[in-house]
Design a protein around this nucleic acid. Structure first.
Lengths: 230, 230
DNA sequence: TAGATTGTTAATCGATTAACAATC
DNA sequence: TAGATTGTTAATCGATTAACAATC
């Protein structure tokens, strides 16, 4: 009965499998092999089979996986089977973008409310979602049993928001603020720091560039030295 | 002379170290130990030392690291020493949010232009950054030797944009569109799929919830069975 | 039965952690 | 010299890959 803990790497791949299955189902494809899913996802077929096998034997040997059945299983594993309500803190550009993006692209998760400190924004709406003052957050979270929240407020306000929401039932946070949040044990924080992600990409762009330059130079000078490269 | 390839995990941590150093320098702190950086970052001191050691011996035994010296080193390693110009495709909510967010938070990278298909947006500005029609992208990329681009267009347009920009010198892409881009070999793509990240967080929220419920139930019924949990 | 593909176990690979000698 | 902290090597841990028996 005791659950072995599944690694983060596996959990991160599940929504990707889910999206692929959604697309296949939309195209009325009823059966899929790990090999086909490998092509769509870029992960190896072995890895896909192994990931799924952590949770059960969902396929049919010789045939593959029934798309709708596997989709339902993954929805269940992630916990997307019941309607998930989430709230966003911060109605700035990022909060607004995320709210709209999510409404358009995420069939499994509903943004129930947006909270902002700025009283001028309160009462307005992002699409159909109302902006509330932050003082009403505690009550809203408790009444609606919100477990997941998105933080899209300025860095200076983020820790305060984190303290508030973890005190009122939130156990998982998607954090866009560029700081390391301190949260009570058991609360899961995923940092989606866009600046950091962009910076680390630069490494690959310059490396690529330097590699090419080096290659050109070496090639021009001396063909034999090519063997030394890589 | 041959460069051992450094793992992605290491590269992803470098911008975090950089931010911590920036903050320390702002507070006029001139020396920092791996232990202190560990506290700020959440990574172990051993890991920080090991990460840095891949690139050289930047510290002083017995003392620690000189903040400004280490910052310069990391800036160099990532490739942020010269001004990095990037461009964004898509002037929708996400593109706009990212443009503004980057201008405010990222001292190392400049958004040089935003491109959009929608002619009504062309000529407008996001902060000080002008929106151009997508037909002008090829020329702009070449003339300004843009190596890094951000894709924030609808899923259906993303592959087309990727084809266009990789044909004109872009070698690293931050992709917000929810599809797997096909790119020429050597081009680095980092997917920042906000929907997927939010979905995978749900797993932790429900697990946490179930764990708590289980715990409460067990505790109420029978104290001795507590030992079986976890 | 023959062909295909899963599920699982074993082997490999890579990344993190621990330990400690070097040295400021 | 004594105390502190790095840089590096070795040990451990975990994740991916390979192989193949099970079975549709």
């Amino acid at each position: 009965m005791s659950k072995i803990s599944i690694s983060k790497s596996v959990i991160k791949r599940l929504p990707i499998y889910l999206r692929i299955l959604d697309q296949l189902i939309e195209r009325d494809i009823e059966l899929v092999s790990s090999k086909q899913m490998s092509k769509e996802s870029g992960f190896t077929a072995e890895q896909i089979r192994k990931d799924l096998a952590y949770f059960g034997a969902f396929g049919t040997r010789g045939a593959g996986y029934t798309t709708s059945f596997l989709r339902d299983k993954i929805i269940n594993i992630i916990g997307l089977d019941k309607t998930i309500n989430t709230v966003i803190f911060g109605a700035g550009h990022l909060g607004t973008a995320f709210t709209r993006y999510n409404a358009a692209k995420n069939p499994y998760i509903n943004v129930a409310a947006v909270f902002d400190r700025d009283s001028r924004l309160v009462g307005k709406k992002i699409d159909d979602i109302r902006i509330y003052p932050i003082d009403e957050a505690a009550e809203f979270l408790e009444q609606n049993r919100i477990k997941v929240a998105i933080i899209a407020v300025p860095a200076g306000d983020a820790q305060g928001v984190a303290d508030l929401i973890t005190a009122h039932g939130v156990v998982a946070i998607l954090n866009f603020a560029p700081i390391k949040l301190k949260v009570p044990p058991g609360v899961y924080v995923h940092n989606a720091d866009l600046t950091l992600e962009l910076q680390s990409i630069i490494y690959y762009s310059s490396e690529e560039e330097e590699r090419k330059k080096r290659l050109r130079k070496e090639n021009g000078k001396d063909k034999s030295s090519k063997l030394l490269i890589e």
